[in-house]
Design a binder for these strands. Structure first.
Lengths: 132, 132, 132, 132
DNA sequence: GTGGTCTAGACCACA
DNA sequence: GTGGTCTAGACCACA
């Protein structure tokens, strides 16, 4: 699988963890779904089993999966995870807006510019723009 | 000085570089102002001169300071640096908003929540927005 | 290996970096090929590991190699690097021709003289130009 | 005078030497003309007298000026200097063209591109192009 | 094993 | 005095 990007400066275990965080938050993996074994994942991802184990440790520590010894790793229910991540995002954006203001940029302008860069994904809206 | 935080996972040279980037972008240091010498900084920051040197290398490479051998390090003009940083902030916020949308959060709500967390500094403006 | 020349006024780390830039641009090292480890290179080049590390930092920063911690340093794809270097060469020659003109030399003569000094490698082509 | 550029990475003594080399090769200073004293130059250039002396040392060593002890520094006759510089330029261009060829660029294309970047300075030619 | 960081201390060019 | 380079050697994160 093309999960690991060697040109990415982040460590491999973190890339793997990020990949699964994303799948879980997006709902691509359901709550209580079992993940493949460490060995299987290592083969699928072409990574060292130690590295995969470290990624799973991170996912467990951050509440994305839970482990049942002897049975495997399972996906945690994501509702609270989503809320937590949303709060992280809110906090991070607030920090960035503060910094922007500190260096003399108007937060509203920054927000407007950021919105322009949002990937299009609301077809109705786009259509209506065309209709005008 | 309390610039270095050993609990911070970032390397010391990067913490020092970040600290000065911030001072420079905020305008706390003026263009062409001379920084303290490497040796002086090392003492002030309780770091090794080599580590300070590495931090200054980073700052030089990224256009925050320029060096005159035998004279010292000087602060670069920050106009273009500020614009570049603003663009970084815009891009980062756009990424975060995209991620929020992916996990099912409304970008507008996220923005509204982030604004609430902005350090208060322009109360009248906020009030007038409500009044409109 | 005879990479380091102590009579050369350039620092050792830069000589090492230049050496590898050349190998990479010439295609002597292929994309994604692994370089020897820092420690191995240090022994081969008779330099200190820190110095080798600094050379690799330069190569990484300038886009010639990428690093996977715990795995090693790898050669970057060189297409864009070659184009960038070609543009550098064009710019440098333009500067030199301007200077030649300023001191009263004819740029065309200078170019013709420079061509005569090109290492011979396509004799037929030169002959045919004369024949035209 | 605006000879020294602190943002230039070259040492100050070299910037001063370059400045005078240029003036001499351009003919702006005539053969056997006397240069101002070290002290005077130091003031005019806002530089340290030691630094000015070092620049003059370089100019003397490379044959651009000669010193009469107790009388001052004088400009050398520039004919041979110009020829030497022209040969340096020819050699450097040849090196660059060789390098271009090594990385797969066509020397003729490189030359053509470099010519396009030459600063315009031959009005008649330009006019004729318009006339065509 | 592999790269990255840091300290300590020496030595050099430059102003 | 000021910055830049280099060696020696230790220690850490990562795979």
């Amino acid at each position: 699988m093309n999960v690991i990007d060697y040109k990415d400066s982040r460590p491999i275990y973190e890339q793997i963890a990020s990949y699964y965080k994303r799948l879980i938050l997006l709902g691509a993996l359901e709550a209580d779904e079992k993940l493949p074994s460490v060995r299987t994942l290592a083969i699928e991802l072409s990574a060292n089993p130690n590295t995969v184990q470290k990624a799973l440790d991170v996912l467990g520590r951050e509440g994305f999966i839970y482990t049942v010894i002897g049975r495997g790793n399972f996906v945690m229910n994501t509702d609270s995870l989503k809320k937590a991540r949303e709060q992280e995002i809110v906090g991070r954006i607030a920090e960035l807006l503060n910094e922007a203001r500190e260096i003399g940029s108007d937060p509203e302008t920054v927000i407007a510019d950021a919105k322009k860069r949002l990937e299009v994904s609301e077809p109705e809206l786009t259509v209506r723009e065309d209709a005008v």
